[in-house]
Amino acid sequence: MSCAPPCWEHFEHGADVGVRGLGRTPAEAFEQAALALTAVVTDPAGVAAREAVAIRCEAPELELLLVDWLNALVYEMATRHMLFGRFAARIEDGRLEATAWGEPMDPVRHAPAVEVKGATYTALAVRRREEDGAWIAQCVVDV
């Protein structure tokens, strides 16, 4: 792992893509994982934060919460035809409350590479990294 938190990266998975967020808290790692998700489709820096969408999820454990969070974003992207470039999340007692900021997808400007079908339980992990205590939130997404 190369980047210094908060940051995100992709990891290799045969046909699909692994998304990984790193942060000082689980919530920050979730925000970064969401950026990694957007980056599967387009450069997150090219997405303007023009509209806010509220997202809430609940799960009995952090790993399931990560899958639910990414799938909620996949759903909002698909049904609103939007891309998101900025995220603010709060996690308390298995509940995630977040805002995703973005704009309607512009095929020319965003040049989307591929659609994300859903988040999977493959290579799923939400844990602290030993060397610096940073939180990692990751899984493979199907494209």
């Binding site: 399931l64 899958v67 639910d68 799938n71 996949v74 759903y75 698909a78 049904t79 079908k117 859903g118 988040a119 999977t120 339980y121 199907d142």
Partner: peptide
Amino acid sequence: RGLGHQIGTDYLRRMV
């Protein structure tokens, strides 16, 4: 399309 993707998402979660 999206319908199949969401069925997969919904039931993977339920099957866990």
